Simulated scan of single mutants.
Amino acid sequence: MSTAAAHLELLGHLERGEITKEEYLAAFSILKSTSIRTRASEVRSERSPSISAPLKFRASVFRNNIFLFLVCALLLFWLAGGLPTIVVMVCLYAFISFSHDMKIHDGIVTIQHGLISKDQIEISLADVRSFRKKQTFSQMCLGLSDVEFYTAGDKPDGIFEGMTDADKLHAYIKQRQRENNVGRRR
């Protein structure tokens, strides 16, 4: 039902005495604010259609733990030697890299750690007050960073380590927060 049709229906209820003037005004203000939010979301979807598509990030575990990975490779090569070491290291890398995942969809950040036992954190983008990007010297050289999400308090509510696109994530979060603020002000 369109906004105009809903308004005419409200007027009909008021004229027949089915609702009071206060009820009419309350219903009209809700109808008006819903209409504005609907129009704002339509404008947002026309302006940037890719916003509704989920963003996915996977940690670069090899680059984030390169020294540990190399020490394990050398140790395995020394113990087992040759081709079995390469196969074991590739399998280990695949196993570890699929255990860290972050997805943003419908305004919710989902961070998952682990394959055998999963730890999952969900944070609403509307609740994110602060976004922190931390980099050690080795992470700066490899183009990685650790990302922390703060909603309230001094401790981070979500941490994602070994991320390659932290600047892209930061820009995305700021864009979503700006769009949500535009929708609220109208």
Rank of each mutant, 00 (worst) to 15 (best):
V90Y: 10
K21C: 02
P54N: 08
S99P: 00
I66F: 05
A4V: 14
V88P: 03
A53K: 00
L8S: 12
E15S: 07
T34K: 13
V71S: 12
R63P: 06
L75Q: 04
D106R: 13
F67M: 08
L75V: 07
L92P: 02
D101G: 00
R39M: 09
I66Q: 03
E15T: 03
L68F: 11
I30H: 12
T85L: 08
I96T: 08
I36E: 11
T85M: 09
S45Q: 14
I36D: 05
C91S: 08
V61S: 09
E9F: 01
A27H: 10
F77P: 00
C91N: 06
M102L: 13
S35A: 15
C72Q: 12
A73G: 12
T34L: 09
S50T: 10
L68S: 12
H7K: 08
F98E: 00
V88W: 10
A4Q: 15
S33P: 01
L31K: 13
I104H: 01
H7W: 07
S50N: 09
E9P: 00
C72N: 12
S45D: 15
A40P: 01
S41L: 07
S45I: 06
T34E: 14
I108Y: 06
P84I: 03
V61A: 10
R16I: 04
K21S: 05
I36N: 09
S35P: 00
S45E: 15
R37F: 05
E15Q: 11
I19P: 02
L83D: 13
M102C: 05
L68Y: 09
L10H: 05
E23C: 01
R37S: 05
S50P: 01
F57H: 03
T34A: 14
S60P: 04
A40L: 05
A73F: 14
A27Q: 14
T34N: 11
E9M: 05
R37H: 09
P54L: 08
G17R: 09
G12W: 13
L11P: 02
E22S: 05
V88A: 15
A27S: 13
L75K: 04
G12F: 12
G107E: 11
P84S: 04
T34C: 08
I19F: 09
K21I: 10
P84R: 02
L74H: 01
N65V: 01
S41T: 11
S48R: 13
A80P: 00
R16N: 13
K32M: 13
R47I: 06
G82M: 11
S97R: 04
N65D: 10
R44G: 01
A6L: 08
F69Q: 04
S52I: 11
S48H: 10
V90L: 14
R39D: 07
A80T: 14
I30A: 15
K32P: 02
F57A: 02
A4P: 07
H13G: 03
A5N: 15
L76Q: 09
G81Q: 07
R47V: 09
L68Q: 09
Y93C: 08
F69N: 04
V88R: 07
L92Y: 15
L14H: 02
R47Q: 06
K103N: 14
S41P: 00
I108W: 08
A73M: 14
V61T: 10
F28N: 04
K56P: 00
I66D: 01
E23I: 02
D101N: 03
G81W: 00
I96Y: 10
V71T: 12
F98T: 02
E23L: 03
P49F: 09
A94M: 13
I66K: 06
